[in-house]
């Protein structure tokens, strides 16, 4: 793993964490409240601040990836054909929407329907942004990235990081149903990631696919990271189950949920970091050029 990849790892994970938080917040917290016409609680300001903070961290690290950041404003000039240009534009639009949503949450928490629409729009922009991010990697010259596994991995990373973080914030506040839903997401996404792994590896190792070079790199050069990721997924599932069975119908009695929810989130975050580092090891040209 090259040190030059760290800014990309942090950038992509931070943006996906932020988008994941917004999507899960919108679907699993705001939507049920909106349906039951419950007022928007001020305690969720913090969630928006974290989502905004993650997006800003992503923006900062995107600059660290550039060799010549002084020309960065020019990167918006090829939206017509460049997915990277579209991504940068998307990150700016998403961050601006998120900032607007967060400010509105603070200054006009009673904005109700407008606030909900703004959160919807921000979350939708986040979903589109993740698709754009995955398209950057889906290029013929990098066949190990050029598959459905790339967007799938990015979306799952966003959902699981967002769900597990919001589970932490739901302790003593959220409904039993939303806590259970978030715990199920926290468990099920790593399970799906583990289930997909053999399919991904067999695809990567197929002789017709660059002679199985991608799989060889994964298993010969990064075996420790490969196993570490498996262990972290399993830990995340175990902590997720622990959290799931700790949730009580009387949500004021949920202090015991803190430890498993925190451990589940930490395992998931660590797993996603290792996963993303391994993803960047697949930056291979099949022919070796």
């Amino acid at each position: 793993m090259k040190s030059s990849e760290w800014p990309l790892v942090i950038f992509s994970l931070a943006i996906q964490l932020s988008a994941g938080i917004m999507v899960i917040y919108d679907l699993f917290i705001l939507f049920p409240m909106y349906r039951s016409r419950v007022a928007f609680p001020s305690k969720y300001h913090w969630i928006l601040l974290i989502a905004l903070g993650a997006a800003l961290v992503g923006v900062i690290f995107s600059f660290l990836h550039l060799g010549n950041p002084t020309n960065a404003p020019r990167s918006l000039s090829n939206i017509g054909t460049s997915w990277l240009s579209r991504e940068i534009t998307g990150v700016l639009i998403y961050s601006a929407l998120l900032m607007g949503t967060t400010i509105l949450h603070f200054v006009m928490p009673s904005a109700g329907r407008s606030l909900k629409w703004l959160v919807d729009l921000t979350a939708l922009t986040g979903v589109i942004l993740i698709f754009i991010m995955s398209k950057i990697y889906m290029i013929p010259a990098r066949p190990a990235w050029n598959s459905v596994f790339t967007p799938l991995g990015f979306y799952m990373a966003a959902i699981v990081m967002g769900a597990s973080l919001l589970l932490l914030f739901q302790i003593n506040h959220g409904s039993w149903a939303s806590q259970k839903s978030l715990a199920i997401l926290t468990i099920s996404i790593p399970v799906i990631q583990l289930a997909i792994l053999p399919i991904y590896m067999s695809w990567l190792g197929h002789p017709d696919f660059a002679g199985g070079k991608g799989l060889a790199i994964l298993l010969h050069n990064h075996l420790i990271a490969f196993y570490l990721r498996l262990v972290l997924y399993l830990l995340a599932i175990a902590f997720g189950f622990w959290a799931f069975f700790t949730i009580r119908s009387d949500t004021t009695q949920n202090r015991l949920l803190f430890a498993p929810a925190l451990l589940a989130w930490a395992s998931i975050l660590a797993a996603q970091i290792v996963d993303r580092l391994l993803f960047y090891t697949q930056n291979i040209s099949p022919e070796g050029f």
Partner: peptide
Amino acid sequence: ACVKACPTK
């Protein structure tokens, strides 16, 4: 492919 990919032209 490089021209299409370049974000700054």
